[in-house]
Write a protein that binds this DNA or RNA. Sequence first.
DNA 1: GTTCTAACA
DNA 2: TGTTAGCA
Length: 131
Amino acid sequence: MNDHVRRNTPLFPIGIVQKLTELTPRQIRYYEEHGLVFPTRTEGNQRLFSFRDVDRLLEIKAMMERGVNLSGIKEIYELKTYSEEPKQPKAPRSHDMTDRELRKHLRKEVMMAGKYSRPSMIQGQLSRFFD
DNA sequence: GTTCTAACA
DNA sequence: TGTTAGCA
């Protein structure tokens, strides 16, 4: 289990992403249509977003609030060939991360990803994923 | 109850 | 972008 995998693992249905980003499902789906995020699908065709998708949605939201339109945002990302995750140097781990360790790290990431959301909402959702 | 697609007073 | 309709 490495950082790249954690950031790209599909974990959240659109409802959770909505609360984490304060974007409407309509906007989130619309941004996907324009190739700004790439959620995977479950067997039932429901979207599952990764931390990376959430991070990007937060960036998009920030840009929109600063007056950048969809076309402008698309151009910015298209120039970056979508994946620009900082390469993680191979960590010399002697063993794989335990489930407990993974949960601890994921919890930290959710805190980060949802730092712009209302605390009450974050807390309410955290209980659905951790302990 | 939640999410999905498509469409528009 | 909002919102509603009809499904899964």
